[in-house]
Amino acid sequence: MGNTFVSIIEIIGTLAFAISGIRLASAKQFDWFGAYVVGLVTAIGGGTLRDLLLNLPPFWMQNSIYLTVTGIALVAVIVFGKFLIRLQNTFFVFDSIGLALFVVVGIQKSLAVGYPFWVAIVMGTITGAFGGIIRDILINEEPLIFRKDIYALACIVGGIFYWGCYTLQLPDEITQSIAAASVILTRFAAVKYHWGLPVLHGNDDESN
Rank of each mutant, 00 (worst) to 15 (best):
T186Q: 06
D172L: 10
L153E: 09
N208W: 07
E206M: 01
I85K: 11
T127D: 02
Q176R: 03
L15T: 15
G114F: 07
A43N: 00
N203W: 11
R147V: 09
F188A: 14
F83K: 13
R187S: 12
L153M: 14
A18R: 09
P116S: 02
G13P: 07
L84P: 09
M1E: 08
M1L: 10
L87P: 10
W60S: 03
L168E: 09
I9G: 08
T186A: 14
I44Y: 00
A154M: 04
V105C: 01
F146T: 08
F30G: 11
R50L: 06
V37H: 10
M61I: 10
N89P: 10
E206H: 02
S7M: 13
L67Y: 05
V157N: 06
A100Y: 04
S110I: 03
Y151N: 01
F5G: 08
P58C: 03
A35Y: 10
Y162H: 00
I19W: 14
L56H: 10
I156H: 07
P171K: 01
A152E: 04
G47K: 06
I12Q: 11
A76G: 11
G21C: 11
F5K: 06
I97H: 06
L40N: 02
I78S: 11
F80I: 10
C155I: 01
Y166T: 08
R135Q: 03
I12C: 15
G81V: 00
T127V: 02
M61H: 05
A180N: 08
Y193A: 10
G81E: 04
L24R: 15
A179R: 02
D136P: 07
M123N: 00
M61L: 15
E10G: 09
W195A: 10
S26H: 12
R23H: 12
M1S: 09
